[in-house]
């Protein structure tokens, strides 16, 4: 689906402020997959995200979308409609008079593909459908459509901004720390909306986050960046199994994994590969019944 090969990028090349932000990074996400991208502050996550939708051009390496290099065609702008990127703190990019118009901005820019390969402006009813279904995805009440985006609350602004990208119906949706600065309930809801978008459209999602628990709950695969290099990648189970290495990179493991590892160190025969609430519950029940069975045998 979307694949990055050996990307290297240097900020401020040729000045004393040179900074190698990406160093030979490869990354890929399959159709319908949620890929987690984690790493310490400054590890290059946002830089990588901007390469995936052709906002930054790599110094070396390439980005393939469905097998074609996104810089091959002369209009790299096309890639931006296929790969939607929601920036860190996206609420600061709102600018229109109404929420509706702001969400429609991307849709209008994208246009509608005609059968003869031409582009045209979307009709009003097409715009309505795109905008309102995007608002529904992020549970933004339709009454807000005619309000000024600057009158919304912080969480609502965030939703409006995410809706502005979802409305373009990208095949790959990249979200750069979509839950930063929200309360726990707001976080859970936003993550739910993202999952709903994936389930409804079969799109791929790249989720950038600082929170291990978030990534653990959603991601099918995880890539860990460190100092612009890929430090680990694999299934959540495989990555979280290397807790010591994660800690060396100033990252933690999900809370459940932490507790279960402690239990294991205390001598409980438990699988410490659990990282979601459901898996943890099932494992605890299994251990509990095993322990009570063991105790029953002794009394006999």
């Amino acid at each position: 689906m979307l694949k990055a090969e050996h990307l290297t990028y240097i900020y401020g090349a040729g000045t004393p402020f040179e900074r190698r932000a990406l160093d030979d990074i490869s990354f890929s996400v399959q159709a319908g997959e949620i890929a987690g991208l984690i790493g310490h502050t400054g590890s290059g996550k946002s830089t990588l995200a901007q390469h995936l939708n052709a906002l930054l051009k790599p110094l070396s390496g390439r980005v393939l979308l469905d097998g074609t290099d996104i810089w091959d065609k002369k209009d790299a702008r096309n890639a931006r409609f296929q790969v939607g990127l929601v920036f860190q703190y996206p609420e600061y990019q709102l600018f229109e008079e109404t929420v509706y118009k702001d969400i429609a901005f991307g849709v209008k820019n994208k246009g509608v593909d005609e059968a003869d390969g031409k582009r045209r402006q979307p009709t009003e009813s097409e715009l309505d459908i795109s905008v309102y279904s995007a608002m529904d995805f992020v549970h933004l009440p339709r009454e807000l459509a005619d309000k000024s985006p600057f009158e919304l609350s912080g969480g609502q602004k965030r939703r409006a901004a995410i809706a502005g990208v979802i409305a373009m119906m990208p095949k790959v949706l990249i979200l750069d720390e979509p839950t930063a600065g929200l309360d726990p309930q707001g976080r859970r809801e936003i993550l739910g909306h993202i999952k709903a978008y994936r389930d409804a459209t079969g799109a791929s999602v790249v989720l950038i986050s600082h929170s291990m628990d978030e990534v653990a709950r959603l991601a099918d695969s995880i890539t860990v960046l460190s100092e612009g290099k890929t430090a680990m990648s694999g299934t959540p189970r495989a990555v979280f199994g290397r807790a010591d290495e994660l800690e060396a990179l100033h990252l933690s493991v999900p809370a459940f994994t932490k507790v279960f590892r402690l239990l294991r160190e205390m001598g409980v025969d438990i699988d410490d590969g659990c990282y979601t609430a459901e898996a943890a519950e099932a494992e605890l029940l299994r251990v509990k019944s095993a322990v009570s069975r063991g105790a029953g045998e002794e009394t006999c």
Partner: peptide, 11 residues
């Protein structure tokens, strides 16, 4: 940053 964000929406 804002320029990139708007470009991401096709500006």
């Amino acid at each position: 940053k804002i320029m990139s964000a708007q470009k991401a929406r096709g500006a």
